[in-house]
Simulated scan of single mutants.
Amino acid sequence: MTLDETPRAVPFQVAAVQTVTGTSVDANLARADALIAEAARGGAELVLLPEYFCIMGRTETDKVAIREADGDGPIQRFLADAARRHRVWLVGGTLPLQCGDDGRVYNTSLTFDPRGQRVARYDKIHLFGFTRGTESYDESRTILAGTAPVSFDAPCGRVAMSVCYDLRFPELYRGLAAGGGTSLILMPAAFTYTTGQAHWEILLRARAIENQCYVLAAAQGGKHENGRRTWGHSMLVDPWGEVLAVLPEGEGVVSGTIDPARLAEVRQNLPALRHRVL
């Protein structure tokens, strides 16, 4: 496949789920299932959940306590079952997987096809750190960074996986696009209110413009039980950088279409991907 080609001649429907995740895993999974069902009823063929859709704990170590072994556990079974029941490609935001370090976990995004078969695993590579006044975050205390970029093939073409803080590192997406281009970038996130207000939309639009692809972002969006406030603004951005749909705050679903004709038009009119030198 060349940079100007697309693997499917008809549009592909996608949806991003936005949540305000709490401290109860069971309640969070039930709410996620209801929103996946809503997206599927609306015609979505691929559904993206946000980062930490399964838990936003009262402490950073709460996610370590619910970690699962790779390939088995209630959260992974939920994702496989939901994909199969709703007949969608389901990308499970992130969940904590064991990493051989009792004090830390991988922050992992898993993709399941409509049969409920797992087709991709991505461990978040870039770990968030931020300090301003009384606001402070250091993911490296409880998360072990992944090492490998991941993409997978879906009916809409090549899909690049990423998580939250990865959005600030354009070289990740350039590497994933090498060879055949990317049709869709996935961005499950839990951006803070502070950083989201300043940078979220502009970064999403930049990644879409420079890679001439769609970007689907599923965010946490509101005031959580643990006192944290997340920015929300889940959205779908097209290859020209246009925001096609957005949900500012609160739970809900953002949906839209991956249009192969639009991908081809943008890449033909402005063949920047083929003009790359470095």
Rank of each mutant, 00 (worst) to 15 (best):
T192G: 07
R77S: 14
P74N: 13
V64H: 05
A80P: 07
L144I: 13
V105M: 02
I125L: 01
A178F: 09
D123E: 08
A40M: 09
L95P: 13
L172R: 02
P50A: 09
R121F: 02
R104Y: 08
T2C: 08
S109G: 01
Y106H: 15
L273R: 04
T23F: 00
G157F: 00
E68H: 11
S183Q: 15
G175S: 02
A16V: 14
V237M: 04
R121D: 02
A208V: 08
Y52D: 03
G116F: 05
G42F: 09
W240Q: 10
E45T: 07
S255K: 12
A217P: 04
Y173E: 00
L29Y: 05
D62P: 09
A177D: 01
A44Y: 04
R118E: 02
T192R: 04
G93A: 06
A44F: 07
T192V: 14
L167W: 03
T108G: 06
Y193W: 09
E225Y: 14
W200G: 08
L244H: 10
P188H: 03
E5A: 12
N211A: 03
T19M: 14
R276F: 07
T21N: 04
A206Y: 02
L270A: 10
D33R: 15
N211F: 01
V254Q: 10
A198S: 09
A16M: 04
G73L: 05
T59C: 08
Y165L: 04
L172M: 12
G129L: 10
K223V: 12
D102T: 12
A80I: 03
P248M: 13
A120C: 06
A9K: 15
L236F: 15
V25N: 11
T134E: 11
A37Y: 00
